[in-house]
Design a protein around this nucleic acid. Sequence first.
DNA 1: GAATATAGTTGCCAACTGCAACCTTCTAGT
DNA 2: ACTAGAAGGTTGCAGTTGGCAACTATATTC
Lengths: 153, 153
Amino acid sequence: MTAASAARVDRAELLVDLEREVGVMVRRLRRVLGERARAVHPDLQTSTYLLLTWVDKHGPVRASAVAESLGIDKGAISRQVQHLLELGLLDRTPDPDDGRATLLSANDEAKARLVEVSHASRLWLDGKLGDLPDAEVADFVRLLGRYNAALDA
Amino acid sequence: MTAASAARVDRAELLVDLEREVGVMVRRLRRVLGERARAVHPDLQTSTYLLLTWVDKHGPVRASAVAESLGIDKGAISRQVQHLLELGLLDRTPDPDDGRATLLSANDEAKARLVEVSHASRLWLDGKLGDLPDAEVADFVRLLGRYNAALDA
DNA sequence: GAATATAGTTGCCAACTGCAACCTTCTAGT
DNA sequence: ACTAGAAGGTTGCAGTTGGCAACTATATTC
């Protein structure tokens, strides 16, 4: 086996390991994200919470843009938006540029609760990752973004 | 604001970013992992595929150990094991040390298909992450494992 | 040997999302 | 201006998934 082919094998194994770790992550996250969601609001579902954090970060956005970014069906977004409206955590205004569309944004109540919960979750996660330097966490976030971009297409 | 408190703020923001990227990952992965699952077997569901990859890696394991490792209910594991047995992708033998337990392992058919699919998915993902050096991918896998360990407790 | 704990199965139910049909509004081509 | 088709969003339907609890069978503990 040449050095080049050995390197290819190693990279293939790396990618298999990557997928398996990611699979574990998906399943363990269900529980953790559910706890976060309930901390923001007792009746807030996990997926709806993820939608809210996305909208909070990306300012006023169309529902269809969110659906495309997150890679899920627009019907699912529509229901979750209704859920957030019922809970009073979302602002929805008509898009001035397009009569069909509406713009979604997290309202003040939602922003306040998210800040509160992020503080608590930071304490929790920091307790688990406390020995991981900031630089490594930053690397992790960067690589996650890179991986997410790869998943997008 | 002191330098120390500024560093804390930065780390808090890092962890918020981390959670949001992870949330995006969860949603995008649903589709990608589903495609992988169907590549292994047309009737293989996404979650069952993740179970199979775990069992393949961790050799003969008890169902209860899998449930604990992956952080999901043992009832869910039970159904997915039945599904894998019906598809002929799993070996199940009584645990010689415990009459209540059974040991699960991926059979030869499953291993062969997983290798085949991992080769194809390696080509796909490599096309997306091709410019990411092996060292960075290895770092990513390591940090994922670290994060998963944090989620475990 | 009785009480308790653990491995696994099953029924029930809530959450999530893909698909498709539908309505409304916008855009393009004529 | 008119029409055809595209795009934003809502809703009904169905399939997947996992939590919870009750149950059987086997192990362990006292």
